[in-house]
């Protein structure tokens, strides 16, 4: 999907910036404090995965207005090594690094819609949506 605004994720400063922008947008869209916190936290997890495991990438921020519904969609994309077993990666406690292994599953639980596509040697795409 095109449209929206593209942001680079190349450093941990970028992760901070992505969080700040997601919060500002969620606020502007009138999200409740709980919903703001949920999408900001999910964004933080996915942005850091993009940086740490994907070797950097991008996020596209898309504001959705479908009739009466308002939402925010975030599409994270990298050209990293990809995830060999996505089911395993989503499982709580699984980490190939030194994390808690909760980020991916947590991001899914914090979102209304979640889509993960990964190809070995090609990269990873994670899209989340939170409706107001």
């Amino acid at each position: 999907m095109s449209g929206g605004d593209l942001r680079e994720i190349r450093s941990s400063d970028d992760v901070v910036r992505v969080r700040q922008e997601v919060r500002a947008r969620a606020q502007a869209l009138g999200f409740s404090l709980v919903d703001q916190t949920k999408i900001v936290t999910a964004a933080s997890e996915l942005a850091r995965n993009t940086l740490d495991y994907g070797g950097g990438g991008t996020v596209r921020l898309i504001e959705l207005r479908n009739g009466a519904r308002t939402g925010l969609r975030l599409e994270f994309e990298d050209q990293g090594p990809g995830i060999p077993d996505t089911e395993q990666a989503l499982r709580d406690g699984f980490t190939s690094g030194r994390g808690l292994g909760l980020g991916l599953g947590g991001a899914r639980r914090l979102s209304n819609e979640f889509e993960l596509v990964s190809q070995l040697g090609q990269g990873t795409r994670v899209s989340i949506t939170r409706w107001k």
Binding site: Q36, K38, L102, G103, R109, L110
Partner: peptide
């Protein structure tokens, strides 16, 4: 804060 508590539960932390 309440919103943080809720989020932490969803994260599974």
């Amino acid at each position: 804060r309440p919103q943080i508590a809720q989020t932490m539960v969803h994260l599974g932390v």
